[in-house]
Design a protein around this nucleic acid. Structure first.
Lengths: 125, 125, 125, 125
DNA sequence: GTGGTCTAGACCACA
DNA sequence: GTGGTCTAGACCACA
């Protein structure tokens, strides 16, 4: 489920955070589901438990999971978060569209650029 | 060239600033071109010359125009500004495209939304 | 007892819900007391019975009233709710007082602000 | 400047974070001022550099300081943060005052409670 | 068993 | 020299 990329220059804990974010946002990990324990995941990935701990701390701070001492870490209910993100995204997009109109970017060019940038983002993923 | 909207809740000088920004960015007013004098424009719009003065000061502060005592106000060379704005706009758009991919918004929906928001911005103008 | 404000932008049923909440919390309507029937209140306010129905449904969902088929709607026992709200209110107030101390707001200014905001709330009511 | 309280049950890094927050909010440490280096402060307090690192990370996340690799950690410009906090605090206070009015808490009792809770917060500090 | 904190110490990137 | 990441491992609180 979690695969580390040692060629990646980003720190390991960051890779773990991002991977779990994806799994949770894509609902592969469902609300309330238990994450592997800090120690188990550390063993499985052959890394130090501290690194997992740090990743889980960050995920909890961001509201993706919640941890209960003595019980484990669990996927949080992120529907509200998703809704808020979606709304903010649309607001930003609306603002950019307005700026495009002000800058004199016509609809055709605007749509072309949007498509190019979307494809670029898709490939990068 | 300048039309005031008294139903608009924003201060008049702000409307004037925005209108000139549009005219300059859209290159209706070209680099080096002389703006109407403070007094003339005030008469034309039937408003206090101080309001125009304030708008011109703000435009100068933002780098859209420059004023020469005894000669008048002129459109500044804003190519650099345009380039920077355009670059920043593209960066923002790229970021939004990336977020769209991360949120699981597929290309079709992304393009539809982009078009809707562009049209909405166009109508509002 | 219920006065509608058509200048208010909120939906009518929401205004009705809020008004009944106030009447029940202020114990003008006592526990067990019968509310006006859907039809009567609708006639009295010259609005659609469905709107009243919706308001009553919302009030029941929130635990302010209970409805018995064929008999009517009655004010619920809300003492628990009142106690909980009061406790939560005090907790929030305690937290704000603490933040005030941390922000360096001295007691005199804190008390002044509290009084001003209380009066403002009173007037608005 | 920083004194640890080993009787305090809270983790050391949290104490350090809070202490620096106070020093920065009270402007004892001014904007742009350099904080002691991770290693120096660790030596001075006879604790592990990791613990300081963790505290500084948290302070940076919260916007109190910024760190530049190879140069050090510096106090951030927090005037905006202070303004925002103050505004949010007032909004919360206004809301609580409104709720107090709705709950039927009269002004005298409201003011008494406010004073008691303020004193309590002051003593706890 | 589980998460949370902390120590001791290594190594890296950046300046 | 400075912050940032990571390992190895201890100990605590909670369940």
């Amino acid at each position: 489920m979690i695969v580390l990329d040692y060629k990646d220059r980003r720190p390991i804990y960051e890779q773990i955070v991002e991977r779990f974010q994806e799994l949770i946002l894509a609902k592969v990990l469902e609300c309330g589901e238990k994450l592997p324990s800090v120690r188990n995941l550390a063993m499985e990935l052959s890394i130090n438990p501290n690194t997992i701990q740090r990743a889980y701390m960050e995920l909890e701070r961001q509201g993706f999971i919640y941890s209960i001492k003595g019980k484990g870490s669990f996927v949080a209910d992120i529907q509200d978060m998703i809704d808020i993100r979606r709304r903010e995204w649309e607001e930003h997009m609306e603002k950019l569209a307005q700026e495009a109109v002000h800058m004199g970017l016509d609809r055709k060019k605007f749509m072309e650029l949007a498509e190019i940038l979307y494809k670029k983002a898709e490939e990068r993923k």
